[in-house]
Computed example of a mutant assay.
Amino acid sequence: MTEVLTTLLQKCATEKAQDLYFRPLSTGWAIIERLATGLKPLQKVTLSEGNQWLNQMKYQAGMDISETRRPQTGRSAIEVAGELIYLRLATVGDFLNRESLVVRFIYPIGQTYHCDDSQILSRLMQLIQQPGLLLFAGPTGSGKTTSLYYLAEQVMQDKMVVAIEDPIEIQQPAFLQLQVNEAAGLTYAALLKISLRLRPDTLIIGEIRDLQTAQHAVSAALSGHLVLSTIHARSTTGVMDRLLDLGISHSQLTACLAGVAYQSLVVDGHNVAAHYELATAQQLEEAVHED
């Protein structure tokens, strides 16, 4: 069983799958792969076989095998062609107490990051060499976190970088990585407050979700730090609207915002590249005045 599961996971990793789903059915589970091009059904397994598979994967990820209803998360890894690929697992039971599992594949950045426009990438590189708030928006699975880490790695080799995420997806030993744990009181806001005492040059914030997190990010940017983060919005100008809606003042936003990149994926056969719509703070300000 372990060999079968390992073969399945390695096959998905070879195809650069983003996720692998175990979706509950009345007779077992449907196993579905998510690629950059969309969902790809792989196979169906029986209740008995599926239970064994889920229990094995949960055990390897340090999760509670006996718990099938409450949400759980865990981590494991596989090796493919000499590269270690981390797996992030999440489970939850539905209203019929049927367990669902999703496996997120976290690839080495050097293996996965590509940009479709070298000039835009150069502009991003310029933006991250100055203090301020640089935000990434875009659909789920478009590689925003990968972009944050790739850009930080390129110019931060000799600087102090603190990353705060929920959960940590990409392991980078050169950075100090802190993981949100709300049950222990380690919220985004609490970790941000602590991290500023460590005197970092750069802060990576997994996501700006609320006013408190946004305020800490803005304050850090205003005090001379480079802050890289993601936020939910549908466009570059939508990012400004989102921050204003959260309660950040227009004057603070104008003073700290370095730029916004709206990210999507461009698929060409088996090759996937990041595509950015990039707007500087000045361009965003002009767009707001035009509206």
Results as ranks from 00 to 15, higher is better:
176 L>Y: 00
273 A>C: 09
78 I>K: 10
186 L>N: 14
287 A>R: 15
158 D>F: 13
180 V>F: 08
148 L>G: 12
149 Y>L: 05
98 R>M: 02
280 T>W: 11
226 L>Y: 00
273 A>Y: 10
86 Y>L: 06
258 A>N: 13
233 A>P: 01
72 Q>C: 10
261 A>P: 06
30 A>Q: 14
102 V>F: 02
204 I>R: 12
95 F>Y: 13
252 Q>C: 03
230 T>R: 02
63 M>T: 03
154 Q>W: 04
279 A>R: 15
73 T>Q: 12
92 V>H: 05
66 S>G: 04
23 R>T: 15
268 D>S: 10
78 I>Y: 08
115 C>P: 10
200 P>W: 00
171 Q>V: 15
152 A>G: 03
114 H>W: 07
168 I>L: 14
10 Q>A: 08
155 V>S: 15
101 L>K: 08
219 S>C: 02
280 T>P: 00
199 R>T: 01
214 A>K: 04
193 K>V: 00
64 D>S: 07
216 H>D: 09
59 Y>L: 15
41 P>Y: 11
238 G>T: 06
242 R>K: 12
252 Q>E: 13
266 V>W: 12
89 L>P: 08
276 Y>G: 00
250 H>P: 00
96 L>E: 12
202 T>E: 09
141 G>H: 08
172 Q>F: 02
218 V>C: 02
206 G>Q: 02
278 L>G: 08
185 G>M: 14
131 P>A: 00
117 D>K: 04
24 P>A: 02
